[in-house]
Computed example of a mutant assay.
Amino acid sequence: MQQYLDNTKYINFHDKGVADLSKNLRGSHIDDEDIAKRCFEWVRDNIRHSYDYSMNPVTCKASDVLRYGTGYCYAKSHLLVAILRACNIPAGLCYQRLSLKGDGAPFCLHGLVALYLKKHGWYRVDPRGNKIGIDAQFKVPIEQLAFTTLLKEEADLPEIWPDPHPLVVKVLETYSTYDAVYENLPDIELVYL
């Protein structure tokens, strides 16, 4: 479980801004569910999704997401994981493979967070931000994510990553504008048995 509590290059909760935010969100709460819900809702509602708001710069490190107030789903997830870890709640990154327009190719990865709650075990949340047609919520033990996988080429990938997937990092560190990221969203081919 230690790897889901570590400070890393991208999940950098030792950054003063991230540490201070975590402390404020935790407040006097001691229940991990209450703390996790507060952290999730803060990132979901206060950090703007880069594409939804046509916002630059492209962010990857948790501290940069907080500093600039924007990020793609992946980067918003990096910040949420950092805040949760600073509150001593194990957390990691997970991904869905989704159709970009909902009707087939092209496909891309979508970033989510898995967090570990003492009463429920691993639980996924989606901090990408709500808008018309998207209503991600924290309703333990029911998952209410932004997207569901409906097509056979879509999938909920089972891994929980302690650090961002290298393909995600490559895209976020290669392209400097939100629209360039959108044109080059990372994807993984599914292997069918």
Rank of each mutant, 00 (worst) to 15 (best):
R85M: 06
S54T: 12
Q2G: 12
F138R: 05
L21E: 11
D15T: 14
L112V: 11
G104D: 07
R26Q: 06
L109A: 06
N56F: 06
D156Q: 03
R38T: 10
E173T: 12
N56I: 03
L167E: 01
Q3T: 10
G27R: 15
L66G: 04
S22H: 10
Q137K: 12
V18Q: 13
C39A: 08
L112C: 09
K37D: 03
R85Q: 13
Q3N: 09
D64F: 11
P162L: 08
E189M: 05
G129P: 02
R48V: 09
V168I: 10
L145G: 00
N7T: 12
A136L: 10
D45M: 08
L157T: 10
K139Q: 07
K101I: 13
K37Y: 08
I134M: 06
E154C: 01
D126L: 04
P162F: 13
D31H: 14
I83R: 11
A146N: 04
T8R: 15
V81A: 08
S28H: 14
I134P: 00
R48K: 15
R128M: 00
H120Q: 00
Q2P: 05
R48W: 09
Q144W: 13
V18L: 14
D135Y: 02
K23L: 05
I30Q: 08
A180H: 10
E33R: 05
S28Y: 08
R26I: 06
N184Y: 09
R85H: 10
Y123C: 02
Y53T: 08
H110Y: 11
A105E: 06
I188Q: 14
Y123N: 00
L80K: 07
D31G: 04
D126K: 10
Y116A: 02
Q137L: 08
D34V: 15
W122K: 05
L93N: 09
D163R: 04
D135T: 11
D34N: 15
Y192E: 09
Y116C: 02
G27D: 03
P166W: 14
N7E: 05
K119T: 06
N24L: 15
E159Y: 11
A136W: 01
N88W: 12
D32M: 11
V43P: 00
R26D: 02
M55C: 03
K61S: 08
K170W: 05
Y123K: 04
L117A: 03
V168C: 00
E189T: 12
D163K: 02
P106W: 12
Y95Q: 06
R128Q: 00
L84E: 01
E159C: 04
N24T: 08
F138W: 12
M1P: 03
N130P: 04
R44F: 04
M1K: 12
L151S: 02
E33P: 05
L117H: 07
F107Q: 12
L115A: 09
N46L: 08
V81N: 00
